[in-house]
Design a protein around this nucleic acid. Structure first.
Lengths: 160, 160
DNA sequence: TCCTGATGGTTTCATATGCAACTATATGCC
DNA sequence: GGCATATAGTTGCATATGAAACCATCAGGA
């Protein structure tokens, strides 16, 4: 795919026409999908993790004291999907799931030593890859990008 | 969900820890997913379209002279998914699919009158919604955002 | 205490998706 | 022309996912 391939068709303009390259949801999705595909390849091939499992692990590295419910709200994933991801991680011995002392409905999630070790290898790889990805952005551009995305997220909460 | 909810857990830092809120792939995915969910609700509930079908229609509004293959490359969707989306649109009478005169393997896709009418109602809604979404961004911020995303896409091509 | 409703999590079931095999057509080389 | 290979698109199959039913536990009020 050559760069600028999105313009090889002469885009049609006018009423009833949508210029997708100016349409933020489209652009955002395309970019996020492609990044996601790359990363997915990385942790699927090398660590046998799918996206849901990776997200659970990433959150476990981000904060201790996690539950399935919290993962749901943080990642916007369906609770069934989270449940299955956690199950798979427990089966692989990367995560422990123990009923909470205070509330038997809740299960506390924790990394095992193996889980922590896997993350200690995976996280630097992910960060290196991200660094390469954003290498063409200046520090200011990067900051502004995250900033704009933050604004959009807050606006989404307001609208939705 | 209150805004800033992503910080209610004290984020842990340090080696082997990943600060997801500074990790672009995560942020991008979360934002794109949420936007996608909102839009999906919009055209699923009101027009009975799924994401794949909407993308095909959007590209048909964007440029005439489309084929399934082009949709695949433009949208990064699997050809089976595109094939099924097109089939559904043809069944609903929104799109025609005719074998190309030059190459019998290729099928030219075109909007029917009904398809165009549906789009003429759907597109303004989508644009209005997008306008509301980006209302908190200045024109400059919006431009910079698309610009940064363009850079990332080009960098992705280079890396991948 | 018992009943009602809410909540965290799992399981079931229907659907959407991706991969691979397949069909049909086209292209290039002998 | 005839064979090998590539390409556009469809279909079959296995898997991933989401919605809803379900189970267990908790909280609150009569």
């Amino acid at each position: 795919m050559s760069s600028g391939e999105e313009h090889q068709e002469v885009p049609q303009q006018g009423p009833g026409r949508l210029d997708l390259n100016q349409f933020l949801p489209y652009r955002l999705n395309r970019l996020a999908d492609r990044i996601s595909d790359e990363l997915e390849r990385m942790y699927a091939q090398r660590y046998g993790l799918n996206v849901a499992q990776w997200r659970v692990l990433a959150w476990l590295s981000h904060c201790d004291d996690l539950t399935a419910k919290k993962v749901c709200t943080y990642t916007n994933m369906d609770k069934a999907r989270v449940s299955r991801a956690v199950q798979a991680l427990v089966d692989r011995g990367l995560v422990t799931r123990t009923p909470s002392a205070r509330d038997q409905r809740v299960h506390d999630l924790h990394l095992t030593r193996e889980g922590a070790e896997l993350l200690s290898r995976l996280i630097p790889e992910a960060q290196d890859w991200e660094a390469e990805l954003v290498a063409t952005l200046s520090a200011g551009e990067y900051r502004d990008l995250l900033n704009a995305m933050g604004k959009l997220e807050r606006q989404l909460e307001r609208i939705g």
